[in-house]
């Protein structure tokens, strides 16, 4: 029997310890992640405050009931019901539509809306951010079976936009094809998500649904024109 061979007579590549060593090699991938800033290099992450939008996670967001109150609060947009969201999105489209049907968000509109709301809370939160950062312009994007509203957005290059997005019925995606890759985003149902995005290149970018949402899923798309 092979096992009968005395350990000393074995080549080291045939010892269990070496096999385990080789097996653990895959863990070194962590160093590469750290080099790209995708993994903490010290325990400092314990003190780090979470910043930025939540990354899209492979399995998250397939839930009927994800519209919990906690979720909405955590998503930072303040609690907003789907009805309120629909109302403001329709106003956004009505106020800012151009003759060709595309919608061009403006800073004036964003400020007027903030003033109208008397939104102290919003300003307080803004003040907490870096003071020199340019204040983003609001964009509303509503996803529903099987279209987006507005369908065509006209944005300026190198200007930050605060996308406020909600799926009105089931989970959808609102991915943007830019450069030669996709920027994949999931939008769980009835949850308001906010994300500030700045487009650094001119062009026409496709918005497309990347979460299967029913029979018309593959007709669900929109467009962002960056000028």
């Amino acid at each position: 029997m092979a096992e009968a061979a005395k350990p000393e007579s074995r080549h080291f590549t045939l010892r269990p310890g070496f096999a385990v060593f080789v097996g653990l090699f895959v863990l070194t991938l962590y160093f590469l992640w750290a080099a790209y800033g995708a993994a903490p290099t010290s325990l400092s992450f314990l003190a780090e405050e979470s910043a930025g939008p939540a990354p899209v996670t492979p399995m998250a967001g397939m839930d009927v009931q994800s519209a919990s109150v906690e979720n909405m609060a955590q998503d930072g947009g303040g609690a907003m019901t789907p009805d309120e969201f629909e109302e403001i999105t329709l106003k956004f489209v009505e106020d800012l539509s151009l003759p060709d049907g595309s919608v061009q968000p403006t800073r004036e509109w964003t400020e007027a809306m903030e003033a109208a709301r008397g939104d102290g809370a919003q300003e307080e939160m803004d003040a907490a951010g870096p003071a020199d950062a340019e204040e983003p312009i609001d964009v509303y994007l509503m996803a529903m079976r099987f279209s987006y509203e507005p369908r065509v957005l006209r944005l300026d290059r190198n200007v930050p936009y605060r996308f406020r997005m909600m799926s009105m019925d089931v989970n959808h995606g609102a991915s943007i094809r830019a450069g030669f890759a996709g920027h994949i985003m999931r939008r769980p149902a009835m949850v308001l998500t906010e994300m500030v995005m700045t487009f650094s290149e001119r062009g026409e970018f496709m918005i497309y649904c990347t979460v299967y949402c029913g029979a018309g899923h593959d007709q669900m798309k929109g467009k962002i024109i960056v000028e």
Binding site: L29, M125, G129, G179, A181, E194, V196, S200
Partner: peptide, 28 residues
């Protein structure tokens, strides 16, 4: 295999960094 994992992981990060959309903090 591990070398290939490094290679494709690095490639993916490089492509990701070249997507012309900057995602910033959501002002809150």
């Amino acid at each position: 295999m591990v070398a290939a994992m490094y290679g494709f992981t690095a490639l993916s990060f490089e492509i990701l960094q070249r997507v012309p959309i900057l995602v910033g903090a959501a002002g809150h």
